[in-house]
Design a protein around this nucleic acid. Structure first.
Length: 281
DNA sequence: CATGTTTCCTGACAGC
DNA sequence: TGCTGTCAGGAAACAT
């Protein structure tokens, strides 16, 4: 599923392919449940714009457009949910099943939004502030911090007094943006912490290990193009490689790569959770 | 307010 | 073979 590294890979891939391109025509399926904009209004808002940049903010993909004297400055925000894909494709290639949106581009290519399970969301947001950092945090993105930018001290504070499992806290997007089920499990393994431990009971030393582990895991995953466990592919339809580096995620009953003990699976915070009972305390 | 639970949705897969 | 049932999960909505 798309988490921070996958979303970053998709955003970078889309950016590399269609930056500077012009949106000639837009279609959205009426089945699509938009984040904040009805399909027809979203199509109207996008048609005739020039794509200036595509980037990741949290688990969202943000499309910035070149200034346009005729209309208000807006951003198009896409969240891939579980199975959402953004694909840059040749129009001659048949549109896949569950294609819910298509942007026809002047370069002759199409940007397609494909989403089997329809957990993805998208919408148009006004850019209220010309400052980029401020724009990042308005409208579509709630409170919370980028895990790759947070300091050790601020990371400790996030979990202070949280009477919930550390796994639930890591998944909570109003604390940290972009960590999902795969990277929560992988980070906790590398920090040697059991997913069910209460966040407020972790020692400073453990929180510092976790801070380092989260950043290392996310950076490494970005470098390898994300994890392709089931559905995930990048903007060109290619799979990532980080699933080959997983220590615990979807490795139930297989030997721990560090100590050889069988990896266990339980449910924590309503999510399938994988850990090594020996390495993680 | 903080935290836990349910819901949305379809493909994949187990079992009969 | 083909049917039915179960599971996967991000995040909003709802309940405690």
């Amino acid at each position: 599923m798309p988490e921070l590294p996958e979303v970053e890979t998709v955003a970078n891939g889309v950016d590399a392919r269609i930056r500077g391109d012009y949106i000639e025509e837009v279609w959205f399926s009426s089945k699509r449940e938009p984040m904040n904009t009805p399909p027809a209004a979203m199509a109207k808002a996008l048609t005739g714009r020039t794509i200036e940049r595509v980037r990741r903010v949290g688990k969202h993909i943000v499309f910035d457009f070149a200034p346009d004297a005729k209309s208000d400055p807006v951003q198009w925000i896409v969240h891939l949910g579980m199975t959402g894909r953004l694909l840059v494709a040749d129009p001659a290639v048949p549109r896949p099943l569950h294609t819910h949106g298509v942007l026809v581009l002047r370069s002759g290519r199409e940007l397609r939004f494909v989403d089997a399970r329809r957990f993805g969301r998208m919408g148009i947001y006004l850019v209220e502030d010309t400052k980029e950092e401020a724009a990042d945090l308005r409208g579509f993105q709630g409170p919370g911090t980028e895990p790759l930018r947070i300091s050790r001290a601020d990371f400790r504070k996030l979990f202070h007094g949280r009477r919930t499992s550390i796994k639930a806290a890591l998944l909570n997007q109003s604390l940290l943006h972009g960590v999902g089920n795969i990277y929560a499990d992988e980070s906790l393994f590398r920090a040697k912490i059991r997913p069910r431990r209460m966040a407020s009971r972790l020692t400073t030393r453990e929180l510092d290990r976790l801070h380092g582990a989260v950043q290392t895991v996310l950076r490494e995953a970005i470098r390898l193009g994300g994890s392709s466990v089931s559905d995930y592919v990048d903007a060109a339809g290619e799979r990532g490689f980080f699933q080959l580096r997983h220590y615990v995620y979807m490795r139930t009953s297989q030997p721990c790569l560090v100590c050889g003990t069988a990896i266990r699976r339980t449910v924590v915070a309503g999510r399938g959770t994988h850990y090594c009972p020996v390495c993680q305390r």
